[in-house]
Each structure stands twice: as C-alpha cells, then as structure tokens.
Amino acid sequence: MRLLILACLIFTVALGDFLVRGVSAYEQAAVAHAELIQRQTQMRDLRAELEVIGNAESDALAAENQRLAEVVGSWRQTLLGGGGNRPPPLDALLTNSRIDALKVGGALHEAIRDQAAVSTGASELLARMVEAVVRAGLSDVEALDLSDQGTEDPVPNVAGAYQIRAQLIVTGDLDKALACLESLAPGPDRPLLTVTQATLRRIEPDRWGALDGLAGPPVRLTATIAAIYADGNDEVSR
C-alpha cells in the first residue's frame, strides 16, 4: 500500500508538473509551429528575392575589393598624394612677367588678382597658368579666367577630390602654344593640373603663304584647365 501511495505521490507531482509546464509547453509548441510555418513562407519569399551567394563568391569579391582598393589607392597616391612643388606666388609672377596683359597695369592683371582672392586653390591654379604661359615664351594672352568664379566642384567618382576649372586663351607660335599646353599636363607639381579640352586654331590667314611647314603661322590656343585637389593633401582656403 505504501508503494501505491508513493506511486500516487509521484504521479501527482508529475501531473502537476505537466499541468504547469507541459500544457504550456504544448501550447508554446503549437504557437512555435505556426510561427515556423510563417517563417518558412517568409524564408521562401526571401530566398526568391535574395541572390544566392556562396562563401567562395563572397571571399572572391572581398579579395577583389582588396586588390582594387590597393590599386586605386596607389593611383590616388600617385596623382593626388602630397608632395611636389607649390607654384611661385602669383603676385611675383605677374609683376615679373614680360607679358603686357599680365604686368601691373595690364589688361588682365587686376582681373587675375581679383580671381585669385577667391581661394588659395584658385590662386595656385592661376599662378600655374601664368607660369606656363611665361615659360612657354608666349607674349599674347587673351584670357586667363576661372570658370564659375572659381567654384570647387567635386570630381565625379573620386571621393574627397574636387576641382577648380579655368580657361586660357593665348596666341603665338605653334611650338610655344604646344609647350604651354604641355606644361599644363599632369605632372609632379601641385596642384595637379589637367587639360580637359584644348583647341588650336590658326589665325591670320593672310600670312599662310609665308608658312614654313607646320611651325609657321601663329595660332590661338584655347584650353580648359582643371586643378584637382584632394582632402588632406591640399588645402584650399576661402
């Protein structure tokens, strides 16, 4: 009889445990089952929506990104990294220039100085352009202007880089014009100058008959220049 009482006691405990935990566990299981069905549907939809990506593809993409980052970084460092010579002061260049339009009192002198006051970048760009004209030995400058009042525009697709555009119109011998143009090509000095567009047009058609090959008649060089700066490496103060 004691055995039966003990068994009944155990059963009572088990029954109580079942009523307290078991019934609620079964209810939870039913809820969990319904939620699982819902999750299964969601997962099926999600799977249809999402691209199936394997670990190998993911790793390959990460490795490719790494390589691209290294390559792009090295290019960026080469083109936009620090270092290189800064241009001489614009005022000194203008003052020492033998070009009438640029000299003090020249047609363009004040206009250039006014534009240079916009920003350090604008000033450096103008200085480089003046330096190129002077070095090429050209004597006639028709225009040396910042585009859009020296507004700094971001360089498309190059994070942290921006550019200031300018236009240069000079006339002179073809060889000098070409030398001027080539000195505006990207080089080691700062800021980085690039020619985004250039036009050479021969002028004074009445002198064609006296041409000596290609070098003869004077030409007008119209070039659009962009000076490119990068955050951290170049400082443009307004």
Partner: peptide, 16 residues
C-alpha cells in the same frame, strides 16, 4: 566604387 574611382583616376592620369 573602386572601379569608378579607378576609371576616374585613370582618366585624369591619361590626360597627360
């Protein structure tokens, strides 16, 4: 982005 930046930088470099 890397490719675009690379192409942009390459284009800048090729202007020389």
């Amino acid at each position: 982005g890397h490719i675009d930046e690379g192409e942009a930088l390459l284009a800048i470099g090729r202007r020389r």
